[in-house]
Design a protein around this nucleic acid. Structure first.
Length: 512
RNA sequence: GAAUCGGUAGCUCAGCUGGUAGAGCAACGGCCUUUUAAGCCGUGGGUCGAGGGUUCGAGCCCCUCCCGAUUCACCA
């Protein structure tokens, strides 16, 4: 998008003029590198090591920092300003007589704006008001910004609370211009650091147990592994339609067939659905498959892993989410689905026919449609009556077979499979089963899905012949799980929208 | 997809029953060598989301559309 002059704001035009003036003064507005020796937090957290006792120049305590100018307080021949680097902000004290008249009067006072990158070399001291500050001996221009940043101000009031003035708070702008959001709203960085920390903790946990991180195709000729509508694309050279994966389950299981004991993948999955506080069309799951294990083992595994994540992020198993305090301490309750429904509604669905269940749904005044099969009806009843009430982490086990075409039939109970979902804060955060490894049963389940599909269920799975072939070659007993990374991140960072844990959530394009 | 609320200066917002678009911060010019939302004096800055309509006159009223937030519906 080319900016014609008339489309520039006054402030942008002024900054472009300053850019030109810098060049005229022989200052490169965009130099190539700068030698940074310290970051703001290094200095502030260990200030005693840096502060010169007699408040004079002492080269042994020299520091060199770089960052964006965020505030300026110019007072004639001396000034204070703060710079923000990757770790936080630190105050700089600069005097005309230290850095030179030309540098101070012409460059610093006239041509530096909020947002510009500068490098400072100097020594650390404490001002009369007690703020640890770098006394600049050298001032280097490191990068001109030609668009003004929002300028929020944070200040502590008398009660010691931090008050923010003029916060950059327009959610639309924050999501569209996340780079600005990150610069200006310091808490945002914290959320994303925690998200990464969470993923690292999970990765380490799985690596420590010897499971292998793998990559499987995103472009798939047949999509499967979940109930969802896909994105479709096309490969030109092969003239072939492809789908963006909705899950990677079927590929990871092929790898178990191939002989790995445990494989996992943090995978971006894509589902062609609406957007909401809990849904983004691309989202992240980690899926893990472990040979010779079942879903009971997987529950132990999950609660241990998530408890550890909470401990690593918060130092405690208790996490505050909105008005709730969620405790991830093991063990989590394990409740069979029908029991959970009966406890909440008084209706026992076990052994009931589709029509009977439809009637119960109506009695509970739950919205049902004619094309809903038994599985969907039960899911609907559960979702309406039980799920929202499960705030503390809970395993709901033993799902109806109709809604679980990839899970193994329960070893002792009829009509259900060995499947669990982990529910937390009223939402599903994980889905797991003892994997179906009987190829004959699997083919029948696929065929049932195909039948639902012809009846109009757009989310029913298609038959994946190659996957069937794979398990016909033999798959060991296997436990598998998928954990929603975005939803878990929402809980772990106390965010109430999925957009707050995605750097770049999907937005409609802006129109001029 | 529906309902509600919102879109005014770089940012945050005000703008009454329709009557020449405002404030704070930011910017610009000046004063100020340990300041704390620094201060003081002065100055400039707007396609009021877009288009149409009503009116002598629209930021405000009416219609259509765009974008967002929230809730619901759909959906892992």
């Amino acid at each position: 998008m080319s900016n014609t002059e008339s489309s520039l704001s006054e402030q942008q035009e002024i900054r472009l003029e300053k850019l030109q003036k810098l060049r005229e003064l022989g200052v490169n507005p965009y130099p190539f590198e700068y030698d940074v020796t310290h970051h703001s937090a290094d200095i502030l957290e260990n200030e005693d090591k840096f502060i010169s006792e007699d408040d004079t120049e002492d080269n042994s305590h020299s520091v060199s920092v770089a960052g964006r100018v965020m505030t300026q307080r110019i007072m004639g021949k001396a000034s204070f300003f703060t710079i923000q680097d990757s770790q936080g902000t630190i105050q700089i004290y600069i005097r005309r007589d230290d850095v030179g008249v030309e540098e101070y009067n012409k460059v610093f006072k006239k041509l530096v704006d909020i947002g510009d990158f500068v490098g400072i070399k100097g020594f650390v001291f404490k001002t009369r008001t007690g703020e640890t500050t770098i006394h600049a001996e050298e001032f280097h221009f490191l990068g001109k910004t030609v668009r003004p940043l929002p300028t929020p101000k944070e200040v502590e009031n008398e009660e010691g609370e931090t008050v923010t003035y003029d916060a950059f708070s327009d959610k639309e702008l924050r999501y569209r211009q996340r780079y600005v959001d990150l610069v200006v709203n310091t808490d945002v960085k914290k959320v994303f650091k925690q998200r990464t920390q969470m993923v690292q903790a999970m990765r380490n946990f799985m690596n420590d147990r010897g499971y292998m991180e793998v990559e499987t195709p995103i472009l798939q000729p047949i999509y499967g592994g979940a109930a969802a509508r896909p994105f479709k694309t096309h490969h030109n050279a092969l003239d072939m339609d492809l789908y963006l994966r909705i899950a990677n389950e079927l590929y990871l299981k092929r790898l178990i067939v191939g002989g790995f004991d445990g494989v996992y993948e943090f995978s971006k999955d894509f589902r062609n659905e609406g957007l909401s506080r809990f849904h983004n069309p691309e989202f992240t799951q980690v899926e893990l498959y472990v040979a010779y294990k079942d879903y009971n083992w997987m529950m132990d595994f999950m609660e241990e892993m998530i408890e550890k994540v909470a401990l690593e992020l918060h130092g405690t198993t208790k996490v505050t989410v909105g008005e709730n305090e969620i405790d991830f301490k093991r063990p989590w309750p394990r409740i069979p689905m029908y029991e959970a429904i009966e406890k909440e509604t008084g209706f026992d669905l076990a052994g009931k026919s589709e029509d009977e269940i439809r009637e119960i749904a109506r009695e509970l005044s739950i919205h049902v449609e004619d094309e809903m099969g038994k599985g969907k009806l039960i899911d609907e009843i559960f979702g309406e009556t039980v799920e929202p009430k499960l705030i503390q982490p809970t395993f709901i086990t033993d799902y109806p077979i109709e809604m679980s075409p990839l899970a193994k039939k329960h070893r002792s109970k009829g009509g259900v499979v060995e499947r669990f979902e982990a529910i937390c804060n009223g939402k599903e955060i994980a889905n797991a089963f003892t994997e179906l490894n009987d190829p004959v049963d699997q083919r029948e389940r696929f065929e049932e899905q195909a039948r639902l599909r012809t009846e109009g269920d757009e989310e029913a799975m298609t038959v994946d012949e190659d996957f069937l072939k794979a398990i016909e070659y033999g798959m060991p007993p296997t436990a598998g799980i998928g954990i929603g990374i975005d939803r878990l991140a929402m809980i772990m960072t106390n965010s109430d929208s999925i957009r707050d844990v995605l750097f770049f959530p999907l937005m409609r394009p802006e129109k001029d």
